[in-house]
């Protein structure tokens, strides 16, 4: 079952990239599908990380929703950092805090750490098992739980459904 999941996910990703790059003519599509199939058959055993997706409809809906949440977060925090930069006094309050995540899957942790880094104002410096060390440009709390609440929680509740 896990192998089948890897197979499907890798194949779909390769096909999407082919369509994005190479246009939509019938002959090209056939070539792309055949090439994707060959690559998938050769390499799906190595792509263990794709086996961690949940492939039920709820998880896929949450994944689409998650992209929008991430976009809104990026816009909000970009404006916040831009405001910091243009103020003459430069009112930053930086520091490295520690947060904990509940996610078990490796791919889930990778996506969580990258989402944290992608939103300006927070930058993942080191990960160690379920603990992330995060450089935060405006530290509001040094406590683990409160920092987790304000940085991680927003993304985690969606990723928990997607990766289980």
């Amino acid at each position: 079952m896990k192998d089948f999941k890897r197979f499907i996910v890798l194949f779909v990703i390769l096909c999407i990239f082919w369509i994005l790059f190479a246009g939509k003519e019938f002959n090209e599509l056939i070539l792309g599908f055949v090439a994707s199939l060959i690559i998938t058959i050769l390499f799906y055993k190595k792509a263990f990380i794709f086996g961690e997706f949940n492939l039920n409809p709820k998880a896929i809906a949450y994944f689409v929703f998650y992209i929008f949440i991430l976009l809104i977060e990026i816009i909000k925090s970009n404006i916040a950092v831009a405001k910091l930069v243009i103020q003459p006094t430069l009112p930053i309050n930086p520091g490295i805090v520690k947060v904990k995540t509940k996610l078990k899957s490796r791919l889930g942790r990778i996506i969580l750490a990258n989402s944290i880094t992608l939103t300006p104002g927070t930058l993942t410096i080191e990960t160690k098992d379920d603990e992330f060390y995060i450089h935060w440009i405006d530290v509001t709390s040094e406590n683990i739980d409160e920092a987790t609440n304000s940085i991680v929680q927003n993304f985690e509740k969606y990723l928990e459904v997607i990766f289980g």
Binding site: I92, N93, P94, G95, I96, V97, K98, A113, N114, S115, T117, L118, L123, T124, I125, E126, Y133, H135, V139, E142
Partner: peptide, 28 residues
């Protein structure tokens, strides 16, 4: 983008570049 900035920041902390004096805390 996040992967490269994470790698840079991790390397910087690993070779011991200090945080600015304004910093509140350094749990790492």
């Amino acid at each position: 983008n996040p992967i490269s900035s994470h790698a840079l920041a991790r390397a910087a902390h690993h070779i011991g570049i200090n945080l600015t004096e304004k910093s509140v805390t350094d749990k790492l």
